[in-house]
Design a binder for these strands. Structure first.
Lengths: 142, 142
DNA sequence: CCTTGACCTTCCAGTAAGTGGAACTTCTAT
DNA sequence: ATAGAAGTTCCACTTACTGGAAGGTCAAGG
């Protein structure tokens, strides 16, 4: 099966599939002409990866999940542990963002938003008493 | 003022401050020995940036906010617009993560988590009917 | 046979916002 | 004089891809 076909069936961009091969998540064989030749198992793996990624698992976790996926002797406890820690991470992030949202909302509501320069948002940013309490949002890329 | 001093007072790592100079957010002058010499205004700017970043504003937004910060003729409407769109983004992300959390929680709850291999989480990941519905979490790095 | 276009290949660069480390110089205190 | 702290630059690494260039391959139509 060619990459375009696999891309369509798995829902993953061809670029992503090549990338996944690069980092060793799949190992398709090659045709004589150099084209990748994906087996049905590869398609399943890629679909699995797509779903796992869409659930927010990191590539590293996906790697582990994939090895469990292929392990008939796996214990569901191992799978659950990964999902559980991911869930905890997600929930922690939600809390962080909710706190952020509350702060922003308060500032936005209090800003009259007209042509005058005075602005509670700027006042907040200009506060100098935050240096100790400030916490970086751990890797929050929105 | 040396960078260590500024770092301490602003709460930003020295590395970050140098990075901010690299990308043109601050322009400290230099001592004869090559050491950076920060003015009080630079310190204020960096504190401002630290606070803005901690509120989740992107560097690009920080750049704009900084120019508004230095603009006595600014209209608070401009500031509010940036904060508002950021808030919208945060709230959208919260919703995404909440949906994710619900899905994960359901899977985790349903997984017995023992030594046996059968597992609802794996079953979900192995589902093949998601390719169309799957949505990549837009840039969610937790 | 030739061409056109779709599809495939590799490789390089860029994204966001820093962080870590190496190699080196300068300042400060003993 | 020398040790250690603090400063400097530069390069690489992080995440998970994505975009684009330059070029090879394949199927269909004239």
């Amino acid at each position: 099966m060619n990459i375009g076909n696999v891309s369509e069936q798995s829902g993953l961009p061809a670029k992503t599939i090549r990338y996944y091969e690069d980092i060793g998540l799949v190992q398709p064989s090659r045709h004589e002409n150099g084209y990748r030749d994906f087996a049905v198992q590869d398609l399943h793996k890629l679909a699995f990866l797509g779903r796992a990624r869409s659930l927010g698992f990191s590539i590293k976790e996906c790697r582990t999940l994939l090895s469990l996926y292929e392990d008939r002797e796996r214990s569901s406890a191992d799978v659950k542990a990964i999902a559980q820690s991911h869930l905890t991470r997600v929930d922690r992030k939600i809390k962080e963002l909710q706190a952020l949202s509350a702060t922003l909302r308060d500032l936005v509501v209090r800003c009259h938003g007209d042509e005058r320069p005075d602005c509670p948002i700027m006042d907040d940013l200009t506060r100098s008493d935050f240096a100790k309490t400030r916490k970086h949002l751990a890797g929050t890329t929105l």
